[in-house]
Amino acid sequence: MKIVIINYGAGNIQSIKFAIQRLGYEAVLSSDPEEIKAADKVIFPGVGEASSAMQKLKDSGLDTLVPKLKQPVLGICLGMQLMCKYTEEGDTQGLGIFDVDVVRFDNQVKVPQIGWNQIESLQSNLFLGVEEKEYIYLVHSYYAPVINETIAVSNYGLPYSTALHKDNFYGTQFHPEKSSVVGEKILKNFLIIK
């Protein structure tokens, strides 16, 4: 199986590569469109600020490639947010895969949310073997509201989409690569999805 982590200069991709290694698979980092298209599984990472990450994606010409991919694609954290229609952060147009606008948490809660929260209302093979209310690790100031494409919900002042799914595209707001054994289960599930 060929696993490609899209390398467009946004964030901590080493950890994802290592997490995949711990599961017994190998992943390559790549920004080469041909190599990405040829992969069996694509991971679309991202940390940092949305508009500059989106700019980097555009600079590498991958903004048009990602929405056309046919194999399973997993966006993580900012990667997931960039797969949405729009994000308030830096007034940024996203890739429009998920039909939702990403907005900032209001100041009723501490922003960013940093730490371990629970996932519930699980609705996808991505969560095979994962119990309701298990804990996952998150660091974020913006969130996607709950929509039809929501496959998991977390609560932080309000319920929001902690994971999304449409066709071959998956997104997690949390970091599976940093979410201990629960995260590893989810990552493994993605790697074996058909």
């Binding site: 964030g11 901590n12 080493q14 290592f18 690790y137 660091v139 690569e177 201990s180 054994v181 590893e184």
Partner: peptide
């Protein structure tokens, strides 16, 4: 980063963008 599946922070003597870039590139979360 290779071994541990929870987040970690690195501190001590960090004084530049280059310092931070190197630590994040190597797998530090914060």
């Amino acid at each position: 980063a290779e071994k541990v599946n929870i987040p970690f922070t690195v501190g001590g003597g960090i004084s530049s963008i280059e310092d931070v870039d190197m630590l994040l590139q190597n797998g530090a979360d914060k």
